[in-house]
């Protein structure tokens, strides 16, 4: 009986001290984490929005509007989740110009297979080690991706997956990933239609 009490006491003490330490760290990192998340979103929004964007303002859960330095509305950025990728959902961020054209698409979160599904999702820079060593490397902030870029410039009215005219042709070997991205983009387009337009 005495031994059991000792066991319970020591394990309980370890747990209590542990949770105390965790509450401290949690409270101290809560704000920086929120800021980091916000910063990450802003960084990615900068990439899909026009370079004149000065500030962004949240409209609703899906959309942000981008204002230039005069406070004029120039574009929207919308994020949505495309269900049914090869490994779970795919989160996309879409920049849409004020007149309803796609400015850029990027995938902010995905679990697709590296080298296969990621061909459709990743924007990968092609800087070579030699150019960095020679000091000639340019930093690519928005490297191209053939599939994501095929949507750029089209009206944001929703897309159909397929090989026909006006349809979106996916990446071979990454059909599920391509479709999931398109589902996400279509969700943004649908929300864009329902968005109250500003003059």
């Amino acid at each position: 009986m005495k031994e059991t009490a000792k066991l319970i006491l020591s394990l309980g003490l370890v747990c209590a001290i542990g949770s105390l330490a965790l509450t401290q760290v949690y409270q101290r990192t809560k704000k920086p984490i929120e800021e980091a998340n916000k910063r990450a979103l802003e960084e990615s929004m900068k990439l899909v929005l026009p370079s004149e964007t000065a500030t962004t303002e949240k409209i609703n859960d899906t959309f942000f509007k981008a204002l230039d330095s005069d406070g004029k509305l120039i574009a929207y950025a919308g994020q949505a989740t495309g269900k049914g990728g090869f490994h779970g959902d795919v989160k996309v961020l879409v920049g849409i110009s004020a007149d309803g054209k796609i400015l850029g698409v990027m995938v902010t979160e995905h679990g697709e297979t590296p080298g296969l599904g990621s061909k459709a999702t990743d924007r990968k820079s092609k800087t070579s080690l030699w150019s960095v060593l020679a000091g000639k490397a340019k930093k690519e902030t928005f490297p191209p991706n053939a599939y994501l870029d095929s949507l750029t410039g089209r009206p944001a009215t929703g897309f159909k997956y397929g090989k026909g005219k006006g349809e979106v042709n996916g990446v071979s070997g990454a059909t599920l990933s391509s479709k999931a991205i398109l589902r996400g983009v279509n969700a943004v387009c649908k929300a864009f239609k329902e968005l109250p337009k500003e003059k």
Partner: peptide
């Protein structure tokens, strides 16, 4: 720490450190 409960104690200690690392990395 009594040797009978040492493994659970170690796991709690390790889990605390991992959570701290996770929070710090997120931040």
């Amino acid at each position: 720490i009594p040797s009978k409960v040492r493994i659970p104690c170690y796991i709690v200690i390790i889990a605390v450190f991992v959570t701290i690392v996770e929070l710090l990395m997120k931040a």
